[in-house]
Amino acid sequence: MAKIVSIINHKGGVGKTATAANLGAALQIRGKRVLLIDMDAQSNLTDCLGVSTELDDTIYQAMRGYIPLPIVKNEDGLDIVPSCLDMSAIEMEIMQKYAREQILHKLISQVQEQYDYILIDCPPSLSILTINAMTASDCIIIPVEAEYLAMRGMGRLTNVIHEVKNNLNPKLRISGILITKYDRRKNFNQDIQEIIRDTFQGDVFTTTIRTNVAIGEATAAKHDIFHYAPKSSGAEDYASFCDEFLKKESTFN
């Protein structure tokens, strides 16, 4: 049965989609069967991995109950459940549904045995879609940019995680906080890193994702970092993060 991992931060621009794409690719390189699910109406994960955002079958149709999870394979061999702009309306459309928080969990349960890891790229909000992802997940990765504003709202996010754990998904836990867009030459980045590590103690991954232009270039080229620039510092950091993640999660198997 796949381990289900949500990648969440309700603040945008923190490297959430890059983390989903590149952790997924790193896991695949290590021989794991991986499925990526794009839950964001902006469809950034879908687009950055070279899948059309105008397909007829997307996570939207599945959440509405019209189809099972639609899985497509991109050029680099990653399995992806694509998103679309219609997802922006899904909250109103499922609001009256019974067990609306469980919709994604039920969809995933039909394919869970086919994969080792299922990674969910969540929208930058604490919406019913994010709650669906938390309800379906075993654990959560929280990417946090090494900037002052990164700490704002973290208390609210952790409170929502605890609420979901207490009321909807008792097995849910935080795998760790991943510091992204880090530049060790900047004293400010170092200070923020120390504050994050002091505040969240053992919940922070040792690996940091350094600021690296190749990560953005890979996104524009519609590939993960390992297929686009395998010798870049971005590839090095996400490979290191993947190894740390696997080692940490092995204690929960």
Results as ranks from 00 to 15, higher is better:
Glu244Trp: 02
Glu236Thr: 09
Asp183Asn: 13
Ala218His: 08
Glu236Val: 10
Ala229Val: 05
Ala235His: 03
Asp224Ile: 02
Val213Arg: 13
Asp237Tyr: 00
Pro230Leu: 06
Ser137Val: 11
His223Tyr: 13
Thr208Glu: 06
Ser175Asn: 09
Lys248Ala: 11
Thr211Asn: 15
Tyr238Glu: 01
Ser233Phe: 06
Thr206His: 14
Asn132Cys: 09
Asp243Trp: 06
Lys186His: 12
Gly202Tyr: 11
Met151Gln: 04
His227Tyr: 05
Ser175Phe: 01
His223Ala: 14
Ala235Thr: 08
Glu145Gly: 14
Arg210Glu: 10
Glu163Ala: 06
Ala239Glu: 00
Ile179Tyr: 02
Asp243Tyr: 02
Phe226Asn: 02
Tyr238Met: 11
Pro124Met: 09
Lys248His: 10
Met134Arg: 04
Phe200Arg: 03
Ile142Leu: 06
Glu163Pro: 00
Phe226Ala: 00
Asp183Ile: 00
Lys247Gln: 13
Pro124Ile: 02
Ser137Gly: 03
Ala133Asn: 14
Lys165His: 05
His223Thr: 15
His223Val: 15
Gly153Pro: 02
Glu236Met: 11
Leu149Pro: 09
Val213Cys: 15
Ile142Lys: 08
Ala229Glu: 02
Asn166Ile: 05
Gln201Thr: 12
Thr158Phe: 15
Ile140Val: 14
Ser233Val: 07
Val164Ser: 08
Thr251Glu: 11
Ile225His: 03
Leu178Ser: 04
Leu178Gln: 07
Ala150Gln: 09
Leu168Met: 10
Ala229Asn: 07
Glu217Asp: 13
Asp183Met: 07
Ala150Asp: 06
Glu244Val: 02
Pro170Ser: 07
Glu249Val: 10
Ala221Gln: 10
Ile196Asn: 03
Glu194Leu: 13
Leu157Ala: 08
Leu246Gln: 01
Arg210Val: 12
Thr135Ser: 02
Ile128Gln: 08
Ser233Lys: 15
Ile131Arg: 08
Thr199Ile: 08
Ile196Asp: 04
Ser137Ala: 14
Ser250Leu: 04
Glu145Gln: 12
Val160Glu: 14
Leu172Lys: 15
Leu246Met: 01
Ile196Phe: 00
Ile179Phe: 01
Phe205Val: 00
Cys139Asp: 14
Ser175His: 12
Pro170Thr: 04
Asp183Pro: 06
Thr180Gln: 03
Thr130Gln: 05
Cys242Gln: 00
Ile179Trp: 00
Ile174Arg: 03
Glu249Ser: 02
Lys171Arg: 10
Leu129Asn: 05
Tyr148Ile: 11
Ile161Cys: 12
Ala235Pro: 09
Val160Met: 09
Cys122Ser: 13
Leu168Ala: 02
Thr135Pro: 08
Asn169Met: 05
Gln190Cys: 12
Asp198Arg: 15
Leu168Phe: 09
Gly202Thr: 12
Gly155Arg: 15
Ile161Trp: 06
Tyr182Ile: 06
Phe200Asp: 01
Arg185Leu: 14
Lys165Pro: 05
Ala218Cys: 15
Pro170Gln: 02
Leu129Ala: 10
Ala239Asp: 04
Phe252Gly: 05
Phe205Cys: 03
Lys231Ala: 05
Leu149Ala: 12
Ile195Arg: 05
Leu149Cys: 13
